[in-house]
Nucleic acid binder design. Structure first.
Lengths: 153, 153
DNA sequence: CATCATGTAACTTATAAAGCTTCATGAAAG
DNA sequence: CTTTCATGAAGCTTTATAAGTTACATGATG
């Protein structure tokens, strides 16, 4: 697979859920994410287990946010997904007794660990509320180009 | 595949090559890296094209460093490998017209770009000579635990 | 009880690194 | 010149994992 898009997709889904009245079904979200409802359920399951969203069965059921967007950081989502592998490059374990391999892995491992730490810190500082406000800004910028009678519905 | 170990493996191989007299065959390196000679040739090809190593055919042939270890940074190797994908997580392209997806991708993309930039900067500051000296330190630390008559062969 | 939605198991698909076989090319040794 | 040894490269198989799909069980609403 090219790369793991679960984090990106869940951020996308949660912001849409915030703008909806009522629960969002897996099928509705799957349409937004251009994927399959089962993939939505499978991915959302971790978020539910961490108390970020709730799911309801039956008529009128679906997925709802369990917290305001400002109370959810991108790091919360990453962790709820099980902290998937961040890097596509990794250390080798070809010859664990070799001191050269050990020296290489230590340096490269330190560099990767530092990059990981910096990235997770940054994900912890951004909330879904921030993303939603960026979306609002984009929407306003877009509407500014429309004829006046469409600017305020 | 779990993760791309080509960078780690090439660092490992190049340091061994520096410690050898004469050329190292793909078969010898494959033994050190616990892999196949063809994988070594395929991976080393990029380094040869960038002038980091040279290859010689026939009797006594194999791979030799084209520069001293202190003249090769980890970034040089990464680039010679074709700058493989760094991250296992990525942006989504499920619904490119969706302003929510665009906002998500911009924030997440910025965070990933910043992490990438920091990591590459760091890789550019570490040379293979630095790794070789870390190996020497490990070797000395290891020998310090041996009985005296083995300490100086 | 019929309908709708999630929960879950099990299987298939897609992708890229890694591994492997085979043969061509060319250099050194005899 | 011939043998041997090494890289070069094409082409295929293997492996690991996210993603997609099918099928059915569970449970809530009307």
């Amino acid at each position: 697979m090219r790369s793991d898009s679960r984090l990106s997709r869940m951020l996308h889904a949660l912001i849409h859920m915030d703008r909806l009245q009522g629960a969002a079904t897996s099928e509705l979200l799957a349409g937004m994410l251009n994927t399959n409802p089962v993939v939505v359920r499978r991915t959302m399951a971790g978020l539910r287990d961490q108390g970020l969203v709730r799911s309801e069965k039956g008529h009128g059921g679906g997925w709802v946010l369990a917290r305001p967007l400002d109370g959810i950081s991108l790091l919360d989502i990453y962790r709820a997904l099980g902290e998937p592998h961040l890097f596509a490059i990794g250390l080798s374990a070809d010859n664990p007794d070799c001191l050269v391999e050990q020296a290489v892995n230590q340096s490269l491992g330190d560099a990767l660990a530092e990059a990981r730490s910096a990235l997770l810190t940054r994900l912890g500082q951004v909330t879904l509320g921030d993303l939603a406000r960026q979306f609002d800004a984009k929407l306003r910028a877009c509407q500014a180009h429309l004829p006046p009678h469409l600017g305020d519905g």
